[in-house]
Amino acid sequence: MLERHSVERLKKTIPGDRLAVIEEFSPSEGTYIDRDAIRATKVGVKNYDLKKKEVKIEVLQKTRKMAMVGDSVIGQVEATQSNTANVRIYYINDKRSLGGFTGMLLLKSDNHHRRDRKKSIMLKSGDIIRARVTSYTNAIIHLSIDENENGVIYTTCSSCGGLIRRLNQVVECVDCGFVEDRKLAADFGRAHLK
């Protein structure tokens, strides 16, 4: 009988290790099929699910994450046009992303929001926003701020750079009184970034 220590040793795997044959298990996370064998693609611990007949690797590395459809991202607006904005992504699902990815935010033509319909994109360069990844079409990260919790979470006055305060769906500069339209997130001014 194998001792516990030996069993633990047998679970450790690095890329290329043979995990199972395809007749016995299905490949899952961190694995791939090489002819009749299932092999590991990452360093980690082998995990065999005997009910589902699946084998996967519990990955130990902190892989740089890519934004996928459905992910919540936080980024800074780099440039805006009448109905698009480029956003530099800094956080993916509240985890810091150093990949330097950029996303594109498009104003939907069927948006029923009163101000969106009137005013185009309602963002300014430099705004920190939270958005949802809606698609990865043509490998471009498409973002949306339509949901209530998404939108601007931090901004400054575009006229004088001063602090601003919320007035419903507009913001007013505390210093110069300049009023601007913004699509604000529900937690505008209260969001915490790690």
Binding site: I14, P15, G16, G30, T41, V43, V59, R64
Partner: peptide
């Protein structure tokens, strides 16, 4: 590359 967590067929 393995340390970076890049998916690899083999070392």
């Amino acid at each position: 590359l393995a340390d970076a967590g890049i998916s690899m067929r083999d070392m």
